[in-house]
């Protein structure tokens, strides 16, 4: 606990890690492209003037997918050691959902 344990990787390990990181970064760019695509579809479907009953669930779904991508890739949830982070974020999302549901149903208007 008192001193940092530093571990120097061997040349092979280092090169392997580097390669994996490069692949990972390429993956991130793909994810980014997908996010841009989803955003574009969302804006376009609203602009196209289709029925709100179709568009609203669609763009909410897109938002959820985009946020999941952001969390699992950009914020590294897909890597190991994020169990507690996920637990607290999912709990927060659950409470958020309950609260928003209450505010659009039982707030009196």
């Amino acid at each position: 606990m008192s001193h940092d344990v530093t571990h120097t990787r061997t040349q092979q390990e280092y090169e392997y890690d580097r390669k994996r990181a490069n692949l990972g970064m390429r993956n991130q760019v793909t994810v980014f492209a997908l996010m841009i695509f989803l955003t574009f579809i969302a804006f376009a479907s609203v602009q196209a003037g289709m029925s709100a009953y179709l568009v609203a669930p669609l763009i909410l779904l897109f938002a959820a997918v985009q946020v999941a991508l952001q969390l699992y890739y950009f914020m590294h949830w897909s890597e190991k050691g994020h169990g507690m982070a996920q637990f607290f974020m999912y709990s927060a999302a659950f409470i958020a959902f309950t609260m928003i549901l209450a505010f659009i149903t039982i707030i009196w208007w």
Partner: peptide, 24 residues
């Protein structure tokens, strides 16, 4: 890192409250 993720959990609820109020 862990503390910050937990803090973001709290932030999520904070924004949910603001969203809920906006929708109302």
């Amino acid at each position: 890192t862990l503390g910050f993720w937990i803090f973001l959990g709290g932030e999520t609820v904070l924004f949910a409250t603001l969203f809920a109020t906006f929708l109302a």
